[in-house]
Every structure is written in structure tokens, then in C-alpha cells.
Amino acid sequence: MRIGELSRRTGVPVPTIKYYVREGLLPPGELSSPNQARYDETHERRLRLIRALLDVGGLKVAAIAEVLQAVDDPARPVHKVLGAAADRLGPQHDTDDEELSEALVTVRELIERRGWRVHADNPAAADLAHALAALDRLGHGTFTELLDTYAEAAEQVARADLDYVDRRVAVEDLVENVVIGTVLGEAVLSALRRLAHVDRSARRFGKREGNASADA
């Protein structure tokens, strides 16, 4: 296909496609004449991945280039490629702060207790430690008592996520699913949690107050 058709099929403007080619994010098309290049389904798939990393994941061009480098490395295991994408989706923290030391120990103990095959320096571990440290500062340090319950629920969600991701074959499709699933999947999970809170609250406290309506 010509670049115009590629643009129509992906919704990416032609100047943007050319920019991605110049930045090395998208392979150049195969020259069919001095001024014409042809593109195929691999370019369409790569464009879809770039847009997912950019629009959904919020990654900068440099971070996208790092993820794509991992995708194109045939020696890198698939779970390492998926990790390279997932690691860049979370907030960046400085984990050297002293107030985080206790929270980091708690997180490492959780990882060991659950038998998770996760390195203690994983960015998500730092995110969790920051959240726990914030809870402690707000006087809710006992929230750590719920960690294993949350971890068990997270394991079920992770299994469902990977069952969905595993339907796709191409590594680029897998990475795209991870990006979309991580960002939008968390939004879905958060909304479901809030709905469940309303239901549990109505069932637990509604009866005490004599409310007939579950929506009270």
C-alpha cells in the first residue's frame, strides 16, 4: 500500500508517519520508485503499537524507541519485552528517601511471601512502597494488613489479563495489549471496585440504618 492508504487505514496523518520514519520508530517503506514507497501490514501493526504507547500509555518518543528496541530484539524473551513496556507506564519515583525504607521492606516481604517471580527493584514495587508510605503518613499504616487480600485479587486479575493477552501471536500485538490493558484495564478495575463498594456498603450499612433501597 502507498503511504496515503496506510494513513487512511491507521488514522495517522502522513506527516506524522514520515516523522516516525525519520525518528526510527517506523521502518521505511520499500521503494517502488525514486519517489514512492510501499508499506504493508507490518507497518500498520507497528503504527498501531506506536499510537498505543503514545496516546494510551503517554510515553515520550525516547521511551517508545526503547520499547520498540525490545520488541525488535529476537534474543529477548517475550516476558522481558512485556516488562519493558509495563515498566515505563507507571509513575517515576525516587526510592532513596529514608521514609520509604520500611515500606520497601514490607513490599519485599510480600513478594517473597507470595512466591512471586518479581525482582524487588521492579518499578511497580516502588509504586506500591510509595503508596504504603503515604498511607502510613496519613495514619493508615494498618492498611498493610490487607496486602495479602489485595495481592490474591491481583493474582486473579493478572491471570485474566494474560489469558486475554495470550490470544494474540505477534509480539507487537502482545505489547499493545499490555499497554492498553494496563492503562485502561486499571480504569475498568477502579470503576468496578467503586461499584462493588457501593454494593457492599448498601448491604452492610443499609440494613443497620433500616434502608429499604440498596442505592440509599
Rank of each mutant, 00 (worst) to 15 (best):
V78H: 08
A62Q: 04
E66V: 03
P91S: 09
D96E: 12
A62Y: 03
R88Y: 06
E102R: 09
E99Q: 15
G83A: 14
L82A: 04
Q69V: 04
K80V: 04
A86R: 15
D94M: 07
V71M: 09
V81A: 04
I64K: 02
H79F: 11
A70H: 04
H93G: 04
V71N: 01
P91Q: 07
L100C: 07
A63W: 00
A65R: 15
D87F: 02
R76M: 14
A86K: 14
P74F: 07
V78K: 07
R88N: 06
A86S: 15
S101A: 13
D96Y: 05
R88I: 00
D94F: 06
L68Q: 08
E98Y: 00
D94E: 09
A84T: 08
V67K: 09
S101C: 00
A84D: 11
L68D: 05
D73R: 01
G90P: 03
Q92S: 14
G90S: 12
P77C: 13
D87S: 14
T95P: 13
L82H: 02
G90L: 12
G83C: 13
P77I: 11
K80L: 10
A85C: 11
S101R: 10
E102Y: 06
I64S: 08
H93P: 03
G90V: 12
L89H: 05
E66C: 02
A84E: 14
E102W: 04
A65P: 03
P77L: 13
G90E: 09
A75G: 12
A62I: 02
A62P: 01
P77T: 12
R88A: 15
A84L: 01
V81Q: 08
V78R: 12
H93T: 08
A62K: 08
R88L: 15
G83L: 11
E102C: 03
A84Y: 01
E66F: 04
E98Q: 00
K80D: 14
L89Y: 10
V81M: 05
T95H: 07
E99M: 00
V71Y: 02
E99S: 13
A75P: 01
K80G: 01
D73I: 08
A65Y: 03
L89Q: 08
R76I: 00
V81G: 02
H79Q: 14
P91C: 02
Q92K: 10
E102P: 00
A62W: 01
D96L: 06
G90N: 03
Q69H: 14
Q69F: 03
D73C: 11
D97T: 02
D87M: 05
L100W: 11
E66P: 00
L89R: 09
P77S: 14
L100Y: 13
G90Q: 13
L68I: 10
L68A: 06
D87V: 02
R88C: 06
G90M: 10
G90D: 12
A84S: 11
Q69L: 12
E98V: 00
I64H: 03
A70R: 05
Q69Y: 01
H93M: 06
D97Y: 01
D87K: 06
P91W: 10
L68E: 05
A86V: 15
V67W: 05
G90H: 08
V67E: 11
Q69D: 14
E99I: 04
D96W: 01
I64F: 05
E99V: 05
A63Q: 12
